[in-house]
Structure formats: structure tokens, C-alpha cells
Write a protein that binds this DNA or RNA. Structure first.
Length: 112
DNA sequence: CTCGTGACTCCCG
DNA sequence: TCGGGAGCCACGA
């Protein structure tokens, strides 16, 4: 039986609505481990589960794609654009518009 | 058991 | 805005 934490991560990832993005740290927190951002990553690119997870909707805390260019960066950006997510000229995602608040109806993750 | 390794984050300068 | 350094955590060699 897999770790509940990993399960939670997957579970939350699946909840990210199209056209929205979340951060690694955010998912980790929701999954129950505020310091488990790295584990989110692990869960993301390991396991065969990855093929049905919206991994492209996860970005770092600065609102930018963490993948190296040429190794996923391009693809992630393309996928996001497909869902309607726009990028600023500097390659940053507009958090005010596209950051998933963590749970339906307003902020649950973001403090006031 | 110790080390090295990240699609991370925060803090400083 | 950008890097460097430190903290964190699970996993595999």
C-alpha cells in the first residue's frame, strides 16, 4: 500500500481545474506536508500514474516552469497555452489570474 | 548507515 | 531579476 502522502498528492493534482495552475509547495501543503515540494516532484515524474496526471499544471512558487528548456519546458508551456493559460513576456504565469486557489470557492491555501 | 540527487522554497545581497 | 546558500525530504546506490 502506497504512502497516503503520495496518494494525497495524486488526488490533489487531479483536482486542479483546466486553465489553472498550482505550485509544488501548494500541493505538498494540501497533501499534508508543507515541506514536501520535492516529493510532489517525485510523485509527478515517477510512477506510471504520471500519464494521467496534469503535471503540466504544476509550476514553481515564482510562477515559472521549472523544467529545463528542451527537456519539457516547451511542452509544458504548449500544453498550458492550449488550456488557455497565458504567459507574461518574461515567461511568468499570471498568478492573479491562473493560480488555482487551492480549493473551490476562494482561498484556502492563500492567506488573506 | 551515509551520500548524492532533485520539475522546490525561502532568505539575503 | 538573478544567484548563492541553507533547509527539507524521500529514494536509490
Amino acid at each position: 500500500m502506497p504512502d497516503p502522502f503520495q496518494q494525497q498528492i495524486v488526488l490533489w493534482l487531479k483536482r486542479i481545474p483546466r486553465g489553472k495552475v498550482a505550485t509544488y509547495g501548494m500541493i505538498a501543503s494540501l497533501a499534508g506536508n508543507p515541506r514536501g515540494a520535492r516529493q510532489v516532484v517525485r510523485a509527478l515524474h515517477s510512477s506510471s500514474i504520471k500519464q494521467r496526471l496534469p503535471w503540466h499544471r504544476v509550476v514553481n512558487a515564482r510562477g515559472r516552469i521549472s523544467l529545463p528548456k528542451g527537456l519539457g519546458y516547451e511542452e509544458q508551456m504548449a500544453r498550458l497555452k492550449t488550456e488557455g493559460v497565458r504567459f507574461k513576456p518574461n515567461g511568468q504565469i499570471d498568478f492573479d489570474t491562473y493560480l488555482w486557489t487551492g480549493s473551490r470557492r476562494g482561498r484556502s491555501f492563500l492567506k488573506s
